[in-house]
Design a protein around this nucleic acid. Structure first.
Length: 453
RNA sequence: CGGGGCGUAGCGCAGCCUGGUAGCGCGACGGUUUUGGGUACCGUAGGCCGGAGGUUCGAAUCCUCUCGCCCCGACCA
């Protein structure tokens, strides 16, 4: 993309309503625009990152064998009356009435609807196990929306639902989700720690939350520092293997890690003192096993091998997709702006032309731009007629992890500068070598697609 | 929902107490200048002072009501 043709309304000054860094930077970098309390438009740059995150979630869900679909944002109230949650959910649920005076609601989650779909079409244990998921906008009428997209009222969420014949099978589905979530977060450049959690209004007697450590997190967390040494890495897991999935869960939940909701000081005190940590965390996902909580009242049953009709064991699993942008920025920024991890960056590299209008720099930039695209990368070329300082400031703000700087001085000896946003270190390379380096850097990120399996 | 605060140009703000022709900085636009970290200068455009009612000769300013937004708290992916 050429910046002169893009829509990137960056702000030089801090909008006064933004108190935390991710909100401030998202507004300043022209990623979002607030339309009402907790409701945002996603401007092109923000939308691009949102789509990248969404794509990673899709990839990893499908890698785990989960099936994508899409349910509507508006739901009939009757389904929720059936489960009993129409009254239980409270003021957080946005209720709407249509012209025929039918009660509708803007879905805060989809257990009822998915259960309805399931019971309409699945009758036999032979159709199990089944995991369906979608990525759809949700609305929860928060008492106090704040922190930009981290606590919006309208938010994009991946929610998946598992159906199994037995509790044992359902817990394997649970473990499978834990594995796929660990992989997903790591691809986004995040460390998300699974922590034992409470059920909350979704319900469930077995549940973990995934927390990203950040000063601005809303939850207080307590953990054994050894937990942060664990990484999923590029290990290959057979998602059908009960043992392999269980082993990952065991490994990642072996150390003490809880939020204030479930914190137990007595157990925490058994962790060696030098390893005890108290911090704050942002919740970016949660997994639940809730048994027959919905299948029973809503009649989601299958005929088992013994000919008996039994309610299915269910679980639900969520990733806060739009919230993740905030969480990633909270965990990756400095005083000049955002620092995107390679896995989610809106553009892979920025090209800064130091002397726009100069024949040699212009053509060098054009050549680099074209070649990067030819090699499958997505560059942002700052071809505006601006001073170098303004271009650098914009690039730093929007946080592209790599920058190629092209100026007459370096070009005289066939050199451009390749700069890492995070470390600030630069290398002088020929344009050809700089491109080769970038291709190499992004090879693992671009290589990760489901089709490659 | 309780407590606190704010709505004046695209953004950040002053003016309000003590009523009398609506201002500053940044940004935008047109020039000149400059070209390796938000350059400098000249000029131009841009405002029903959130909305409604009231007081007054006269309201951004005083009074009443209302809408919106932010912050703290209880609640939450």
């Amino acid at each position: 993309m050429r910046l002169s043709r893009y829509f990137l309304p960056v702000l030089k000054e801090d909008p006064k309503e933004a108190q935390i860094v991710s909100h401030r930077l998202m507004l300043r970098a022209g990623m979002i625009k607030q339309q009402a309390a907790g409701i945002y438009s996603w401007l092109p740059l923000g939308f691009k990152v949102l789509r990248r995150i969404e794509q990673i979630v899709h990839d990893e869900q499908q890698r785990a064998g989960h099936i994508p679909m899409l349910m509507p944002t508006l739901q009939p109230a009757d389904l929720w009356r059936e489960s009993g949650r129409y009254d239980d959910y409270g003021e957080e649920m946005l209720r709407i009435r249509d012209r025929q005076k039918r009660d509708l609601l803007y879905g805060p989650t989809n257990e009822e609807m998915i259960t309805d779909i399931f019971r309409s079409h699945v009758n036999s244990y032979k159709d199990l196990p089944l995991t369906l998921y979608h990525i759809q906008w949700k609305f929860r009428d928060e008492i106090r929306p704040r922190f930009g997209v981290m606590r919006g009222r309208e938010f994009l969420m991946k929610d998946g639902y598992t159906f199994d014949l037995t509790k044992e099978d359902a817990l394997h589905a649970y473990n499978r989700h834990l594995v796929s979530y660990l992989r997903s977060y790591e691809r986004m450049g995040l460390q998300a720690i699974p922590m034992r959690a409470d059920g909350g209004p979704i319900g469930g007697d077995y549940t973990h939350e995934f927390l990203v450590l950040a000063e601005t997190g809303e939850s207080e967390v307590f953990y054994d520092s050894h937990i942060t040494d664990l990484t999923f890495g590029d290990r290959q897991i057979d998602y059908d293997s009960v043992e392999e999935c269980q082993a990952v869960l065991d490994e990642f939940t072996s150390r003490y890690a809880r939020t204030d909701e479930t914190h137990d000081q007595a157990i925490f005190d058994q962790v060696p003192e030098e390893r005890r940590r108290t911090a704050r965390g942002i919740e970016v996902g949660q997994i639940f096993y809730f048994g027959t909580k919905y299948s029973e009242p809503m009649g989601a049953t299958v005929v088992g091998p013994d000919g008996q009709r039994v309610p299915v064991h269910m679980g639900s699993h969520g990733i806060g997709v739009s919230r993740l942008l905030g969480a990633i920025i909270e965990a990756n920024h400095d005083d000049r702006g955002i620092i995107w991890p390679e896995g989610v960056t809106p553009f892979h590299v920025g090209i800064v032309n130091l002397k726009q209008g100069d024949n040699s720099t212009d053509s060098a930039c054009e050549a680099i731009y074209a070649e990067l695209q030819a090699r499958g990368l997505d560059p942002l070329y700052d071809d505006r007629d601006e001073r170098a300082g303004a271009k650098f400031a914009s690039m730093d703000l929007i946080g592209l992890p790599w920058r190629i700087t092209v100026g007459p001085r370096g070009l005289a000896s066939n050199k451009v500068e390749l700069t890492n946003r995070r470390t600030g270190t630069s290398e002088e390379l020929s344009p050809k070598d700089a491109i080769a380096r970038l291709v190499q850097i992004y090879q693992p990120v671009l290589g990760l697609t489901v089709q490659d399996r």
